[in-house]
């Protein structure tokens, strides 16, 4: 069995993916997508001149990279003993998850809502789920779970 874990800031998704991988002896790949859609998100801002906009986009990229380092460090601490890879890519979060999920995985585990990068503003789960070639396990977001309880 081959599992893909889409990483965001939800520790419950990691816990669930590890639980299944350990129980099934599966290969677990974790994917962290550095969101590259800030340019599109702020594309309507035509007033920024000089180097304001590019400085902002570079700052956001540095923030995204910091988030990647932190997420991967936390993940590595928990994943000991399980076969698999840590993948980091830059791009549109939904596109990258769908692209990776198309590579012979049996199960995709992701948080719901999925809060990676600017996807907090969108509906990534619905877009990922559409015609997905593998099973999908949605794990309720820890923070959202606390809110509802």
């Amino acid at each position: 069995m081959k599992i893909l874990l889409a990483l965001d800031d939800n520790p419950r998704a990691v816990e669930q993916a590890l639980l299944i991988a350990r129980g099934r002896g599966a290969v677990l790949n974790a994917l962290f997508v550095i969101d590259a859609t800030w340019e599109m998100f702020t594309g309507h801002d035509w007033l920024s001149g000089c180097n304001a906009r590019i400085g902002f986009l570079e700052y956001m990229l540095s923030q995204e990279e910091e988030a990647a380092v932190l997420a991967l460090k936390t993940y590595k601490e928990q994943v000991a003993g399980i076969a698999g890879e840590l993948l980091t890519v830059t791009g549109d979060v939904v596109d990258e998850i769908r692209k990776e999920a198309g590579k012979d995985y049996d199960l995709l585990v992701m948080s719901n809502p999925f809060t990676r990068g600017l996807e907090i503003m969108r509906d990534p789960v619905a877009k990922v789920a559409r015609k997905l070639p593998c099973d999908l396990l949605l794990v309720r977001h820890a923070a959202k779970r606390e809110e509802s309880s």
Binding site: E39, S48, G49, C50, R53, I54, L61
Partner: peptide, 16 residues
Amino acid sequence: DNKKSLTVFKTDRHED
């Protein structure tokens, strides 16, 4: 490299 990939122009200064 980032600048090249982010806008049509290298920076906003070029766009201005």
